[in-house]
């Protein structure tokens, strides 16, 4: 009951390695999200999945479809580019919001406004 596309052996091994390493990096990032102590530490964790994790999984997908359909399938580049550019933007905005809220409440460990 294992469903997967028929690939040549070398391609299957390379795709498997890419997907497994990407998924484990993403998982490590999310483990960091649950285990780290403060909010500012936790913001660093999801970037693992959004950068190298995502790139590896999408590279695996690209290679798989390129071998399967014997033509270059490039639209995962779009996905990777989009995630790579938008995740930092959301994180910057989120940290700005968190800094603003922490300063408004005079929480310790937050540098004051310049």
């Amino acid at each position: 009951m294992i469903q997967a596309p028929e690939l040549p052996l070398w391609a299957a091994i390379v795709v498997s390695l890419l997907i497994l390493s990407g998924a484990s990096l993403t998982l490590i990032g999310v483990i960091g999200l649950t285990r780290l102590k403060t909010f500012y530490e936790r913001v660093h964790a999801p970037t693992l999945g959004a950068t190298l994790g995502g790139v590896l999984i999408c590279a695996g997908s690209m290679l798989c479809f390129a071998v399967l359909q014997t033509r270059v399938i490039a639209h995962e580049i779009l996905l990777v580019g989009f995630v790579l550019i938008t995740t930092p933007v959301t994180l910057i905005l989120l940290v700005r919001a968190a800094l603003y809220r922490d300063r408004a409440e005079d929480n310790p460990h937050v540098p004051p406004m310049e």
Binding site: I2, A4, P5, L7, A12, I13, V15, S16, L20, S24
Partner: peptide, 17 residues
């Protein structure tokens, strides 16, 4: 053989995700 390798890797990756 290649279906088995890729299938197992996909299951493992999906469980992790």
């Amino acid at each position: 053989m290649s279906v088995l390798i890729l299938g197992c890797a996909l299951i493992a990756a999906q469980v992790m995700l």
